[in-house]
Structures are given as structure tokens and as C-alpha cells.
């Protein structure tokens, strides 16, 4: 299998805290790769470095074989890497459709276009609606984003990432704060999404991770202590000791 994303000996410290402490990781094309780890393990910090929001202290990130370690985040997005946010990051004052349309617009040529009203550009609106249909939010398209439930916000967060057309999606705890039904719906949705994109999934919900992941890496104190299939991870003594055992 070919690797879409390769991470080599990545390091990032905040003051004395090594949040990323020599991470080496291969994400295969088309797989759903989960990263699990306790609070403060450095999961979000890792995603931020992969998306370009944070600059690593050292190490290398390759995407499709190209060294992107120092590329700014907007150029990585153009290459096909996008992320969702652990803390919902939507434009609450705008409509649900507006949020998605801005993502669609990003791959529709440049946006240095000053005269025509963005909301009147039919193909942007239509493609945004299609994406909402995919995630099951089409009935909420014209609602102000602020009026959505927490569960719907999390879905919309994914819809925005989807609408960029990215090949590689970095999802930071898409199920954060979801209750039983919402959580099941999200798992269902990610199951359908799986295989159509390459997904790096960060998640605390163990049931979700074991149901979804092709492979799992366990991150503890900034280090990956194990990578393997769900069965291998379940059977790994270190992991049980360091992480699963705590539950």
C-alpha cells in the first residue's frame, strides 16, 4: 500500500513540554487511521502540524512524496489536506449553507472577485447543498448556524471539510460532546465516508474507533507507542497498561 502522508521524527515543544516527541507515522492512501491517546497526549498538536497551523521544531512531513514541512496551511489545503476542529469553528452569524459554500468556493478558482454577490452564484450554492445532503443537513441549509444543535454543528463541521474536496481529512474528535444517538449517526456517516477519502481520525470514543479504524496508533506523552490493526491494539500489553487500562 502506498503512503499518502509520511511523518518522520516530528518534534514540537511548548516551553518544557514535549507535545510531539519524535512522531513517525505513515498514513496509507484510502485508509481510516485513528489516533487515540489520553488528554494532553498531543493529538491536536499533531494535527495542527500536519495542517500547517503549527510549525514543528524538527522532523519532516511528506504528502504524496513532496516535502510540505514548511508549506503554509492554505497551500496544504490546496494540495488536498483539510482539517476539522475539536472546538466547533463555524460562522455562527451566517447560514448553514453559507458556511459550506465558502468551502466550495475555495476550490472554484481564486476568489479575487469583487462584484457579483457570492450568494447568487448558483453552482456554488448547488454544490454546497449537495454536500449538506450527503451529511443529512439539507433541511437546515437556510437556518442561521447558531440555531443548530451541538450534534448538527459537529456534522456541519465535517460537511465544511468535505466541501473543500480534500483527499486527506484530519478530523479532530468529531464526536466530542455528542450524546448516544448523535454519536451513532456520526459513526454511521464516517463509515459511509470511509474509503472515499483518506482519514486521520482523532477520537476518545473507543467504540467508535474500534468500529471504524483500519489501523490505530496510540499516542502517549507525544510519542506513538503502538500502531496496528484494531485487534493488534486491543491485544497490545503496553497499550492496555498505558491507556486502555485506565478506563
Amino acid at each position: 500500500m502506498s503512503s499518502l502522508l509520511q511523518v518522520r521524527d516530528l518534534r514540537k515543544s511548548f516551553g518544557g513540554v514535549a507535545a510531539t516527541d519524535g512522531v513517525t507515522l505513515d498514513i496509507h492512501k484510502g485508509e481510516l487511521h485513528a489516533i487515540i491517546g489520553p488528554n494532553g497526549a498531543g493529538k491536536t498538536t499533531l494535527i495542527a502540524q500536519l495542517s500547517g497551523a503549527l510549525r514543528p521544531d524538527s522532523g519532516v512531513i511528506l504528502y504524496n512524496g513532496a516535502n510540505i514541512t514548511r508549506r503554509p496551511p492554505h497551500r496544504r489545503a490546496r494540495l488536498g489536506i483539510t482539517r476539522s476542529f475539536q472546538i466547533t469553528s463555524l460562522v455562527m452569524e451566517m447560514s448553514v449553507l453559507d458556511n459550506v459554500a465558502l468551502a466550495v468556493q475555495a476550490r472554484d478558482g481564486h476568489s479575487f472577485r469583487f462584484i457579483r454577490a457570492a450568494r447568487k452564484i448558483a453552482h456554488l450554492r448547488e454544490r454546497a447543498r449537495e454536500t449538506l445532503r450527503e451529511v443529512g443537513l439539507e433541511t437546515r441549509a437556510d437556518a442561521p448556524t447558531a440555531e443548530l444543535s451541538h450534534g448538527e454543528h459537529r456534522q456541519l463541521e465535517i460537511a465544511v471539510a468535505l466541501a473543500t474536496g480534500a483527499e486527506m481529512m484530519l478530523l479532530d474528535e468529531p464526536m466530542a460532546g455528542l450524546g448516544g444517538t448523535d454519536s451513532a449517526r456520526m459513526i454511521d456517516f464516517l463509515k459511509r465516508l470511509k474509503g472515499t477519502r483518506t482519514i486521520l481520525l482523532i477520537e476518545h470514543d473507543m467504540d467508535a474507533v474500534f468500529a471504524l479504524a483500519d489501523r490505530i496508533s496510540v499516542l502517549v506523552y507525544g510519542r506513538i507507542i503502538a500502531t496496528g490493526s484494531p485487534d493488534e491494539i486491543r491485544g497490545n500489553a503496553d497499550v492496555r497498561h498505558a491507556y486502555l487500562g485506565e478506563e
Partner: peptide, 29 residues
């Protein structure tokens, strides 16, 4: 009025409160 409602304006206005989000979509804000 035209500018702030245009595609350019949408990027500008959203980037005001959500810069990281807009950058993540591929815009050089």
C-alpha cells in the same frame, strides 16, 4: 456593498472572526 457581498467579501468577513478556519479551506487570508 458589492465588495462585502462578493466572493472576495465572504472570505474577508469570515476570516475576521475565524482566520484559522478560512486558511484551512485554502485561502491565503
Amino acid at each position: 456593498h458589492l465588495i462585502v457581498n462578493s466572493r472576495f467579501g465572504m472570505v474577508l468577513r469570515v476570516a475576521k472572526g475565524n482566520d484559522e478556519r478560512v486558511v484551512t479551506l485554502g485561502y491565503n487570508t
